[in-house]
Design a protein around this nucleic acid. Structure first.
Lengths: 324, 324
DNA sequence: CTGAAAGCGCTTACAG
DNA sequence: CTGAAAGCGCTTACAG
């Protein structure tokens, strides 16, 4: 015999009111094409509230054939930007449309089955890039919409890098370098951003960027700052604030004045940047409209809106502190 | 008419093999007390594999009356310790027991319905502290086990603080201060840790700790380091590496040598600490056994193991760098 | 305007 | 050893 839970069901509400389960269902779902007298409607709503009725998601999903779950795949790499507000905005908008947001971080070596196999979300959204295997696996698991690159797409990524270049240019720097992370998981995004920076530099008539990878715990940063000094490079744009911190730290240790001899600007405006000495300049991304865009993209893919959401105009701002 | 999905069902497997759905179910679930000939077993398994059968989680949950979902509530505040390995370990262990891990971050002002109302997990685990409202709401939603304080519990928290005190003591510091974050969300955990530090100092016969809150963007850090200098305090243990960075940064700016005049040690071993100048000393927590402990706690609560898991012996290590 | 009923995919007690 | 069948809670076409 199937397990019966102690939770309140729609049948309980119907029984308490002497109505049929169908009527209760029509009210609870606001089913179109049904003419329920306002009085009955109110009675059902009140009783459901009183009994603490919560629809059984498993039963709804089974019956409807979809879960109304939207899964947002978080990148494996640390997201420095303030995600809290972003996630609240996305889930709020989806919630209003009857969908629920689930976030999930899949990592390279993970030994558990991917979460979409269990949860069967209708949509899988990639915050970063999704690999082919994941995309296929998510589709097999029933995801109707799989959006990759929705956020870390090249347009967004390019805008931040371009801003970094312009900032250094405006402050008089002409010979620039791009500092990359060594972390392989970041390689693709880093390459896209580096390319954007290259193009921005070329547009301004600057010589080609010097590109270098920095890592913590070895001498890559120390060697980089020395070579930059010897090559007459005075401005460095970093992939993120951690890489910027590595560059600034190495410069300070080598007696290279920051920002007098070497100006450095990071990306993401990570909190620790303000604690640094000198405080790190950075680029900050406005996350609110991005969230709206992502939610709309998902809903559009599910057929909730006729027209695709307007392409996003990224909102980047320079946060000027001491390192540039 | 209910929506029928295009996914392969157990009935498809049965039909392809000319068996009943029951037999297929017995094989797929390894139902005890059934004697299925090995040959049939193999045929079912092979056909399920060939057709790409994936059980419908909604149907299983509906029928069984439980979702076999374990929800891990992540703290709202930034978790600096390397979470990736921890989460992999927890989900791997739960996966092996037939459970699926879902992480969720609930924030104070969130406008979407809490995720447990939709997903109906069997267990809700708190990484940080769970408030009363959440606990009740999770229970109403059908969670059988709600564990609060499973990780940030006082024993664990105390061990880290004690280690910080001992470290400074061993390096000759006798007058110590504790640097707290101003962030209210961290207040409870910070208070617990501070209390542990106080006790550790008392045990070593040290004078009472000077306790101060630091924040970014104001002069709290600058004032604190001056007052510490004037009071003859030479060692500071910080709530985390960010607060440590604030203290070190303020000291450097005030011309107070670190670690010669003021030694500072952080907590969590955040990556940016190595990029800092001077590089931040910290305390690092071994996350592997903690993960095992958390998974076992959840499974024990669900009745999977007879005895409660042995109390966790926290594995903390000093990471000695330049700031102490 | 309201009710009886089917069926989503699964698990499992029961009958052969 | 295997099958027919019930029922988890829901949604919704259909009949009154």
């Amino acid at each position: 015999m199937p397990a019966s839970s102690k939770r309140v069901t729609a049948a309980d509400v119907a029984r308490a009111l002497g109505l049929s389960r169908a009527t209760v269902g029509f009210v609870l779902n606001n089913t179109p094409g049904q003419t329920i007298p306002e009085k009955t409607r109110q009675r059902v709503l009140a009783e459901a509230e009183r009994l603490g009725y919560r629809p059984n998601h498993a039963a709804q999903a089974l019956r409807r054939g979809n879960t109304r779950l939207v899964m947002l795949l978080m990148p494996d790499w640390p997201v420095e930007t303030s995600l809290a507000g972003f996630l609240d905005e996305v889930s709020f908008r989806l919630d209003q449309a009857g969908y629920t947001l689930v976030t999930y971080t899949r990592r390279a070596g993970d030994r558990a089955r991917p979460l979409w196999e269990t949860l069967h979300p209708d949509v899988v959204l990639g915050l970063g890039e999704l690999d082919e295997v994941s995309v296929r696996s998510a589709k097999v698991s029933g995801a109707k919409v799989v959006l990759t690159q929705s956020i870390a797409d090249s347009a967004l990524t390019a805008a931040g890098a371009r801003l970094q270049v312009r900032h250094l240019y405006e402050r008089g720097h002409r010979r620039l370098a791009f500092a990359l992370p060594e972390d392989r998981r970041l390689a693709e995004l880093a390459a896209t951003r580096c390319e954007a920076a290259r193009r921005a530099a070329a547009e301004l008539g600057l010589p080609p960027l010097d590109v270098r990878s920095l890592a913590a715990g070895d001498d890559t940063a120390a060697r980089a700052v020395r070579q930059w000094r010897d090559a007459g490079i005075t401005g460095v744009l970093a992939y993120n604030d951690f890489i910027a911190a590595l560059a600034v730290g190495a410069a300070v240790r080598a007696g290279i004045g920051v920002p007098t001899s070497l100006a450095v600007i990071g990306h993401d405006d990570a909190p620790f940047g303000q604690a640094f000495v000198p405080a790190l300049s950075s680029v900050r991304m406005g996350i609110g409209e991005l969230a709206r865009y992502v939610a709309d993209l998902a809903l559009h893919g599910l057929g909730h809106t006729g027209t695709a959401p307007a392409p996003l105009v990224p909102d980047f701002r320079i946060v000027h502190r001491e390192s540039s």
